[in-house]
Measured scan of single mutants.
Amino acid sequence: EEKRQVKQVAKEKLLEQSPNSKVQVRRVQKQGNTIRVELELRTNGKKENYTVEVERQGNTWTVKRITRT
């Protein structure tokens, strides 16, 4: 359940930055209360990979860091 929520948060964050792209989740890793989500962003056939680190704060998820990989 929490992985599902985190995927959603990570996707939304990337789509905010580039709204007309397609996002696909590649991998989800958990480390303590930080969850790392690896995503693939496609814009006009151009692929970019991103890693989004999401942290739990109380009962909400906040995006800590977005890295292009």
Results as ranks from 00 to 15, higher is better:
31 Q>L: 14
53 E>S: 06
64 K>A: 11
44 N>C: 07
63 V>L: 04
64 K>S: 12
40 E>G: 03
15 L>Q: 06
44 N>Q: 09
62 T>P: 01
9 V>W: 03
60 T>S: 14
69 T>E: 11
46 K>S: 09
61 W>V: 04
60 T>M: 13
13 K>C: 08
25 V>G: 01
26 R>C: 08
45 G>H: 07
6 V>Y: 05
30 K>T: 14
33 N>I: 06
59 N>K: 10
21 S>G: 13
19 P>L: 03
69 T>A: 09
30 K>G: 13
19 P>K: 04
62 T>H: 12
15 L>V: 04
69 T>R: 11
24 Q>W: 15
18 S>Y: 15
12 E>V: 05
58 G>S: 06
52 V>D: 00
25 V>F: 10
41 L>P: 00
56 R>D: 02
69 T>C: 07
60 T>V: 13
2 E>S: 07
8 Q>H: 09
3 K>T: 15
65 R>Y: 09
57 Q>A: 11
53 E>K: 02
42 R>T: 15
4 R>K: 12
37 V>W: 01
1 E>Y: 04
21 S>C: 04
47 K>Q: 09
45 G>F: 11
10 A>S: 03
53 E>W: 14
61 W>N: 01
42 R>C: 07
9 V>I: 14
12 E>I: 08
23 V>M: 04
54 V>N: 00
10 A>L: 08
4 R>I: 04
37 V>N: 00
7 K>Y: 11
68 R>V: 07
7 K>P: 03
69 T>S: 10
34 T>P: 02
10 A>G: 03
35 I>E: 01
58 G>N: 09
58 G>V: 04
11 K>R: 12
26 R>P: 00
65 R>P: 01
15 L>I: 04
22 K>M: 11
12 E>H: 07
44 N>A: 10
7 K>T: 15
53 E>V: 12
31 Q>W: 15
10 A>C: 05
4 R>G: 06
3 K>V: 15
63 V>H: 00
47 K>I: 14
8 Q>R: 11
4 R>F: 09
20 N>M: 08
37 V>F: 02
9 V>G: 01
47 K>Y: 11
36 R>S: 11
4 R>S: 10
34 T>N: 07
30 K>F: 15
54 V>M: 11
6 V>L: 07
47 K>H: 12
18 S>M: 13
7 K>F: 13
13 K>L: 07
7 K>C: 13
9 V>T: 05
5 Q>I: 12
24 Q>E: 10
62 T>C: 06
48 E>P: 00
22 K>Y: 13
43 T>C: 05
52 V>C: 03
40 E>I: 13
17 Q>I: 15
10 A>K: 01
42 R>E: 13
59 N>D: 13
26 R>Q: 07
56 R>Q: 07
58 G>A: 06
18 S>E: 08
1 E>T: 06
60 T>H: 13
27 R>L: 07
6 V>I: 14
54 V>F: 13
69 T>L: 12
56 R>M: 08
11 K>A: 10
5 Q>S: 11
64 K>F: 09
59 N>Q: 10
29 Q>C: 11
41 L>T: 06
29 Q>E: 12
20 N>V: 03
46 K>N: 11
48 E>L: 06
65 R>M: 11
34 T>Y: 12
10 A>W: 02
39 L>C: 11
50 Y>N: 00
50 Y>P: 00
61 W>S: 01
36 R>T: 12
61 W>H: 02
14 L>C: 05
24 Q>H: 14
16 E>F: 03
55 E>Q: 09
13 K>Y: 13
2 E>C: 08
31 Q>A: 10
28 V>T: 05
55 E>W: 12
30 K>I: 15
37 V>L: 06
45 G>Q: 07
46 K>R: 12
16 E>Y: 02
62 T>K: 12
46 K>M: 11
14 L>M: 13
47 K>M: 10
57 Q>H: 11
24 Q>S: 14
45 G>K: 07
69 T>P: 04
38 E>M: 15
61 W>M: 05
41 L>K: 03
18 S>F: 15
41 L>C: 06
12 E>R: 11
59 N>P: 11
20 N>A: 09
63 V>F: 03
55 E>H: 08
48 E>F: 07
47 K>A: 09
42 R>I: 15
8 Q>D: 09
34 T>W: 09
55 E>T: 09
8 Q>K: 14
11 K>Q: 07
6 V>R: 01
15 L>M: 09
27 R>G: 09
27 R>H: 09
17 Q>S: 08
62 T>R: 12
21 S>T: 04
49 N>G: 09
6 V>N: 01
61 W>Q: 01
44 N>M: 10
57 Q>L: 12
16 E>W: 03
58 G>I: 03
22 K>Q: 13
49 N>K: 14
12 E>C: 07
32 G>W: 05
51 T>Y: 10
1 E>R: 05
31 Q>P: 01
28 V>K: 01
37 V>C: 03
25 V>A: 04
24 Q>F: 15
29 Q>Y: 15
51 T>A: 07
41 L>Q: 04
8 Q>N: 08
21 S>W: 03
30 K>A: 14
37 V>Q: 00
63 V>A: 04
60 T>R: 12
5 Q>H: 10
10 A>M: 03
66 I>Y: 03
3 K>E: 15
55 E>A: 06
35 I>K: 01
7 K>N: 06
21 S>Q: 02
66 I>F: 04
43 T>P: 01
39 L>R: 00
43 T>L: 12
62 T>M: 12
27 R>V: 04
60 T>C: 05
24 Q>N: 11
55 E>L: 07
64 K>M: 15
33 N>P: 08
34 T>A: 08
33 N>R: 10
11 K>E: 06
58 G>Y: 05
66 I>P: 01
25 V>W: 03
57 Q>R: 10
39 L>T: 02
21 S>R: 02
37 V>M: 03
32 G>K: 05
49 N>Q: 12
59 N>T: 10
14 L>R: 02
19 P>A: 03
58 G>K: 06
44 N>L: 11
54 V>I: 12
24 Q>K: 15
53 E>L: 13
29 Q>V: 13
25 V>N: 01
37 V>P: 00
41 L>S: 06
48 E>D: 06
64 K>R: 12
39 L>I: 10
37 V>Y: 02
5 Q>L: 12
17 Q>R: 12
26 R>E: 03
46 K>T: 11
38 E>A: 09
57 Q>G: 05
29 Q>A: 11
48 E>T: 09
32 G>D: 05
2 E>M: 08
32 G>T: 03
62 T>Y: 15
21 S>A: 13
63 V>E: 00
3 K>G: 10
5 Q>P: 03
38 E>R: 09
66 I>C: 03
53 E>Y: 14
36 R>F: 15
43 T>S: 11
35 I>S: 06
49 N>P: 03
46 K>Q: 11
50 Y>K: 00
2 E>A: 08
3 K>M: 15
64 K>C: 08
47 K>G: 04
57 Q>E: 14
36 R>Q: 10
38 E>W: 14
4 R>H: 11
47 K>W: 10
62 T>D: 05
45 G>E: 07
65 R>V: 07
22 K>V: 13
68 R>T: 04
48 E>Y: 10
14 L>N: 01
14 L>Q: 01
49 N>D: 07
30 K>C: 08
35 I>T: 11
38 E>I: 13
29 Q>S: 14
66 I>Q: 01
65 R>H: 08
55 E>V: 13
42 R>H: 12
28 V>W: 10
12 E>M: 09
4 R>T: 09
28 V>P: 00
58 G>P: 02
42 R>S: 12
